[in-house]
Structures are given as C-alpha cells and as structure tokens.
Design a protein around this nucleic acid. Structure first.
Lengths: 192, 192
DNA sequence: GTCTATAGGGCGATAGAC
DNA sequence: GTCTATCGCCCTATAGAC
C-alpha cells in the first residue's frame, strides 16, 4: 500500500484508446529489446518505458515471447514500407535506392538492432520461426518485387547484415582510423 | 546429502591438469553461449556441459562476463589462425581463399555464432568493448595483413556477417526455394 | 482495462569444507 | 582444485480486486 486511504489520487494510467496504447507499448518494447536483447530485456523494463504495469504488458500480449514476435513483425513492416517507397521514387537504380533507404531507417528506427536480436534469439521456439520467416520475406521482396538479380540480392543482404552489426557495436559513434573509414563507406559522409 | 556415509565413491571430477581443464571449460562454454546467447546461457548449463560444478566455473574465470570475453577471444584467434593459413596456401587470390576459410570453419567451430552473440550482447559493459575490439582486429587484418582494398574488405566483412546470420537462423538446414539458392550461393554446393 | 500482490522458479556469486 | 550449500536478487506469469 502506498497511501493511507483508498481514494484515487493519481490516474492509474491515462485512458488511452486501446489500439493506441498497444502501439505505444510495442514502440517502448522495441527500444528495450533493441538495447538489451530478447532475453536481457524484462517485461518490467518495458512496462516502465510504456508507463504501465508489468502484469499488464504480459496480459496485453500474452507473454514476453509473443510481444517480441510482434516487435519483429512491426520492424519488418517498417522496412518493407521504406523499401516500397524507395522503389517508387527511383525505379532506374533499385539497388542504390534500397541501400539508401535501409541506411536512413537508422536515424529514426531501431529496426537494424531488432533484426540482429531476433537472429541472435533464434534458439527460442517462437522467435526462431519468426526470424527465419522475416528473413525469407525480405529475400522474396528483393528478388520478386524489386527484381534484383541473385547476385545483387545476396550483396544487398550481406551489406544489410554488416549495417546491423555496425549499429550493434556502436561503431558509427566515435570510430577512428580504419574503422571510421569503413563507417563512412557504409553509412555515407554524414555518419558519425 | 546424497549418501549415508562420507566416503568418496565417485571422483569429484577427474584430475585433469589445470590448463587443460580450463581449455575444456572454454570449449563447453562456447557451445552453450553459441546456442543460447550471452544472457540466455547460465553458468550452470556450462558447468554441466563441462562436467564440473557451477561454482567452480565462476571461480575459475571470475564470473560469467569474464568467461564470455575469453570465449570471444578464443573464437577470434581461431578465425585469424584459419585466415593466416589460407593466405599461406593461396597467395594469388586472397579474397577467395579467405572466404573459403571462413565458410569451412563452420564445419567444426561455433565461431560464427559466437561473433553474432557477442555483437548482440554489446550493451554489456565488458562484452561491448571486446566485441568492438574483435571487429576492429579483423578489419585491421584484412587491410594490413591480407592487403585487401577497402572495397574488398568491406564486401568480405559484409559477406561474413551474412554467413553469421544464416548460421544463426539455421537456414543451411532444410531451406527450400529462394532461400536454398541463397544458401548454395553462399556456402557452396556442398551445404545443406 | 488496469492495477497490486505474490507465487514459483532460476540465476550469479560467495562461504566454507576438504 | 574442487565441491556443496545457500544467500539475495530478478524474472515471468497468474490471481484477484476495482
């Protein structure tokens, strides 16, 4: 008990429309999972970030596992949206346009880190299938929607995984020497 | 208590020379960390895999964090050894030789998974610096020992990160369609 | 829809014996 | 060197009130 009487003093959580609260919680979860990984993130950290109770997080999504799968799903959707928009804008050089789109996602989203954490947590019985399906969905898009050659698709994915890694180890912040050169090559002169 | 008297029945752990036991424990830890990740692996799982007690694992290395850093170090050494050998064998096409060496490491070692797990756990104050230093050491080797161009080094690292990812999601086992084609392109016709 | 309380289990690390 | 025992913490999920 926190108070001497039973009256309501603070709002128990501002009444936010259901779907919006859900989206907000997924966004908070994305930040926490990106920073701490699937196992390292706790439902309590996510709850605090979202301003709700730990048990409510579990109730709303059915468990931590299901929540992470939703986070993966949303990150993948963000990527595919950005890719689709990039293809619409610059049809002649799809490879360049997609690469630029993936890099610029890093400025506002945590999608790279979520992908890496999903791959790292593939040993989990629910995360593994989601991670694998996500990867295959991306591959399918590159081959059959962006119409990349097998060569280009492979090189694009490889470069994407390098970007994920560089983001994870924080190389874009404070690298010097050879590492700084690599960061500039991958992220462009604006990075750092 | 497991027995009615205090006599010794089973060896409490076969007397193995110190350094050898240490190496054996690092090998067991490598398997467990590769499969479960840094946070997901417990010192007790590692202890069981090594046939010793949980507390002894902690004592021997000073803690789970220090043990993982040693595992990362050993994996990196394995990679650099393999790369050095590959360069000695085939000086004319270093890029091809190094690529083949990295792929064939997958048959006996867990180095790819350990690298990925180290990158994923970079938020940890001891793991992060080790992961970053390992990556930079690899980059330095490619540029200044293998004498790759900046372009080649970037493409090689990117391909390496793709290999790590494919291993993590288990794509080489049981892929079909586009995914199987990608696996064959990356790992060669012998994979699956 | 949302909370508090708590059950129930696992974890890393330490103490201390041999 | 190596073990057993155990402490204190944190974690997910559930129960139950409002």
């Amino acid at each position: 008990m926190r108070r001497g009487y039973s009256g309501r003093v603070t709002d128990p959580a501002p009444r936010i429309p259901g779907p919006e609260r859900r989206a907000l919680t997924i966004a908070s979860a994305t930040d926490v999972f990106a920073a701490r990984g699937y196992v390292g993130a706790s439902t309590d950290m996510i709850a605090r970030a979202a301003g709700i109770s730990q048990s409510y997080v579990v109730r709303m999504f059915g468990g931590k596992e299901a929540l992470f799968v939703e986070v993966i799903r949303r990150s993948l959707d963000r990527i595919l949206e950005a890719f689709t928009a990039a293809l619409d804008d610059a049809p002649p050089q799809p490879l360049t346009a997609l690469g630029a789109a993936y890099v610029s996602l890093a400025q506002k989203e945590q999608v790279h880190l979520i992908l890496l954490q999903a791959f790292a947590a593939s040993g989990d019985p629910a995360v593994g299938p989601a991670a694998r399906a996500g990867f295959e969905e991306l591959l399918h898009f590159l081959l059959h929607t962006a119409h990349l050659s097998a060569d280009d698709a492979e090189a694009f994915l490889a470069r994407g995984m390098l970007i994920n890694t560089l983001m994870a180890i924080g190389l874009p912040q404070g690298a010097t020497g050879d590492a700084a050169d690599l960061v500039e090559r991958v992220f462009g002169p604006a990075a750092g």
